[in-house]
Amino acid sequence: MARSVSTRRKLITTLAAWAIGIAIFFPILWTILTSFKTEAAAIADPPVWFNFHWTLDNYVTVQERSNYFRHFMNSVIISGGSTLLGLIIAVPAAWSMAFVPAKRTKDVLMWMLSTKMLPPVGVLVPIYLLFRDLGLLDTRIGLVIVLTLINLPIIVWMLYTYFKEIPGEILEAARMDGASLRSEIIHVLTPMAIPGMASTVLLNIILAWNEAFWTLNLTAAKAAPLTAFIASYSSPEGLFYAKLSAASTMAIAPILIMGWFSQKQLVRGLTFGAVK
């Protein structure tokens, strides 16, 4: 039974919700707008909203001055690589925990989760020294390894909660029909697991893309992804708001779009299934 709501009340709610929504989104909107302004217009007082000379110069400058595209690709490779590697390790683990649970499965899951609670700064020194000695500092492969490890518990957990929802009887039936373990995974499990795996991948790319502790501490210039590249704007130099905005807009746009698609899965992934 749906509650009937008066139109008046619905209109007031609409007004309030939109006002708050726009206010929360405003810093992002302002950054996008500023990225198309000249540096002078970017700091104009009173601020200019839409009636300015729109230009793409900032995007060109950001690319030319610092080879922005390389940092963008670093982000793509690091977040994509760590997600792929994590998936390869996590799928078999989550599969067996969901379908062949042992007495200790719950303990293993909880223990994996507990590694996520470790504050990164607690292992900053040894990881930094290990990376220095192994020549992994400022390399993409080094960051792929670290991000795979820190996000592995989330991947295992998310996959586990999705796999859990696949009825076990279907697998039993396939097994009775003489399907081998391999074909069971490829022909029966995979098609049913694809949606869950897609959300896991999406959430993990978002988390890896925005990770800003290890990326800042373990990279310098070569392997710096966008998080670390953008941080170089923290030392101001003349007028730079428009350029900062252009660099920022390109850094957040892909993730913003992905994030909007994965809203629902986000809740589940980030609460380890505690809220669905």
Binding site: I24, I230, I252, M258, G259
Partner: peptide
């Protein structure tokens, strides 16, 4: 929901 997807260095600098 958008601010959640903005990387920490970007939101802090903006």
């Amino acid at each position: 929901i958008a601010p959640f997807f903005v990387m920490p260095t970007v939101s802090a600098l903006v």
